[in-house]
C-alpha cells in the first residue's frame, strides 16, 4: 500500500466522520481546521487501528504526526514498514 492509498483511505473516512464531501478535505490541511474535535479524532484513531492494525496511540505520537492528513498517512506508512 502506498502513502497515497493510505491518504485516500484517511480522507474518505474523515469525510464520513464529519459528514462532509471528501473533495473538501485537502491532504495538507491541519486536522483541527477541518472541524475535527476530540470525539472525531478518537474515531479516526479507532479507524486506523481497525483498518491498518496499528495502535498509533501506543506507538509514541507527537504533534507533527497529526499536522495534516498527509503527515498522518506518512506516519502510518512508516509504522507499517
Amino acid at each position: 500500500m502506498t502513502i497515497k492509498d493510505i491518504e485516500n483511505k484517511l480522507i474518505n473516512q474523515i469525510a464520513a466522520i464529519l459528514s462532509c464531501s471528501s473533495l473538501s478535505i485537502k491532504p495538507d490541511a491541519q486536522l483541527h481546521t477541518l472541524g475535527v474535535d476530540s470525539l472525531s479524532f478518537v474515531e479516526i484513531l479507532v479507524f486506523i487501528e481497525k483498518e491498518f492494525k496499528i495502535k498509533l496511540i501506543e506507538s509514541g505520537l507527537d504533534k507533527e504526526d497529526f499536522k495534516s492528513v498527509r503527515s498522518l498517512a506518512a506516519r502510518i506508512n512508516k509504522t507499517l514498514k
Partner: peptide, 9 residues
C-alpha cells in the same frame, strides 16, 4: 497537558 485535539477530555 492533554495532547492534540483533546480539549473536551
Amino acid at each position: 497537558q492533554a495532547g492534540y485535539l483533546m480539549f473536551m477530555p
